[in-house]
Structures are given as structure tokens and as C-alpha cells.
């Protein structure tokens, strides 16, 4: 027997945790939940059972906007050739320190 058609496990939420204050929020995984509070609690139980983080976010997965991998090349490529954004591009004369 299978579930009737109104039955479901609720929508998917993406979970982000912050290891300690000041650290960036990192994607931990996802959970199912029907509402925001449930999403927070489910995320707590699934992703913080072992270490206590300093912060937790949940975001409806459907609300996340991502770059299509097919577009990734033209989308990201321009970053590749801006070498002057990197400190190693510049020559520091011998004898100059703390730069």
C-alpha cells in the first residue's frame, strides 16, 4: 500500500550552520519540514547532534537561485584573467617589507 496523494513528507529546506561566532555559514545538507519552526528543529536534530554550532539557518530549497552549470563557463570565466586582482601579480622590490 502506498500513501494517498495528499500525503507527503513536506518540502525540502537547505540547512546552513556556523561552526563558531565569526565563521562563515556553510551548507550542511537538507531536511524535510512543513513549516519554518519545524525546519529549524529538524535541522537542529539532524545536523547539530554532535557539535554545537553558534548559528543555524534554514532556507526553502525552492527559493535558492543557482547558476545553471551549462552557463558556468561564460559566467565564471571572466574572473580567470583578472590577474591584477591577486597580490602575486605585483612585483615587490627587494628590501621592501610589510607590504
Amino acid at each position: 500500500m502506498t500513501s494517498n496523494h495528499t500525503d507527503s513528507q513536506g518540502p525540502v529546506w537547505e540547512v546552513f550552520t556556523q561552526k563558531k561566532s565569526g565563521a562563515p555559514y556553510q551548507h550542511a545538507g537538507s531536511v524535510h519540514a512543513f513549516d519554518k519552526e519545524m525546519a529549524l528543529e529538524n535541522a537542529r536534530d539532524l545536523y547539530t547532534r554532535r557539535d554545537k554550532p553558534s548559528g543555524l539557518w534554514v532556507v526553502p530549497a525552492a527559493e535558492i537561485v543557482a547558476v545553471d552549470p551549462g552557463d558556468a563557463a561564460p559566467f565564471f570565466d571572466p574572473a580567470d584573467d583578472k590577474v591584477y586582482r591577486h597580490p602575486t601579480f605585483y612585483e615587490v622590490p627587494a628590501g621592501v617589507e610589510n607590504l
Binding site: M1, S3, N4, T6, D7, S8, G10, F34, D35, M38
Partner: peptide, 22 residues
């Protein structure tokens, strides 16, 4: 597994209805 899943259906439906109402 089937029994637990079937018994949980009313709970999931309630949670869905509550979320829709919210």
C-alpha cells in the same frame, strides 16, 4: 515500515494543513 508510515499519515496531513493555513 508500512504500518508506521500509514499511522503517520494523519500527522503529516495535519502539519501540511497547518502550514497552508499559516
Amino acid at each position: 515500515h508500512k504500518q508506521v508510515h500509514a499511522e503517520g499519515a494523519w500527522v503529516r496531513e495535519a502539519a501540511a494543513a497547518y502550514a497552508a493555513r499559516q
